[in-house]
Simulated assay, not measured.
Amino acid sequence: MAIVGYARVSSVDQDHTTQVERLQAAGCKRVFSEKKSGTSKQGRDALDECLQWMREGDTLAVTKIDRLARSARDLHNMVHELEEREISLMVLDQAIDTRTPTGKAFLGMLAIFAEFETNIRKERQSEGIAKAKAEGVYTGRKPTAKAKKAQIEALLAQGMSKPKVAKELGICVASVYNALKEA
């Protein structure tokens, strides 16, 4: 019966050293860590490795619930999978222990707040992008195929095939077709 830690930060420029140290201080014999977004369980290799490594009777420890998941659905699915395998969950900052009914209830409430926080952040980001676009600061990527429409037409008039035109101009074949549709 081991206590196994999982530490996560969202981006490569963040540091998870403090989480790892806290998990080790809490008795974790092994700590898995990664730098990935927590909005989805997909693509989180260290989490997958951690869950595969754990055995019946072990305890998964995280410093905060949002380190494990920011989606209530993902969190509930993970907790359910852990319960089926008779693995408990311990969250250090919120003093959650899924071996108790109170711990399970509190976990569910925190999952909803973690997801809510993610949704609020997305909303703020969308508002910021809309404002930047309105001010002309955020214009997106410059169109490549549209800017090369005259070159596309000239090369096609010389008898070059669409795939060869795309290769010659450094664009994809679909962009050649899209530029021609704009006529």
Rank of each mutant, 00 (worst) to 15 (best):
M1Q: 07
G5C: 06
D13Q: 11
D13N: 10
T18V: 14
Q19V: 04
R22Y: 05
Q24G: 09
R30F: 10
V31M: 03
F32M: 05
F32S: 01
E34C: 03
E34G: 02
T39L: 00
S40A: 03
Q42M: 09
R44S: 00
D45E: 14
E49L: 12
L51K: 04
W53A: 12
W53N: 08
G57L: 05
A61M: 08
R67N: 02
A69M: 02
S71C: 03
H76E: 12
N77M: 13
N77K: 14
E86S: 14
E86A: 14
E86Y: 11
L89A: 03
A95N: 15
I96P: 01
D97R: 10
R99I: 05
G103M: 03
G108K: 09
A111R: 02
A114G: 03
F116C: 05
F116L: 09
T118P: 00
N119R: 14
N119I: 06
R121W: 06
R124L: 08
S126T: 09
I129L: 14
A134L: 05
E135H: 07
V137A: 09
K142V: 13
K142E: 13
P143Y: 09
K146D: 15
K148F: 05
A150S: 13
Q151V: 06
Q151G: 03
E153M: 12
L155W: 08
K162I: 08
V165Y: 02
V165I: 07
A166S: 05
K167A: 14
A174S: 15
A174F: 11
A174W: 11
A174L: 12
Y177R: 06
Y177F: 11
N178Q: 15
A179P: 03
A179K: 01
E182H: 15
E182P: 01
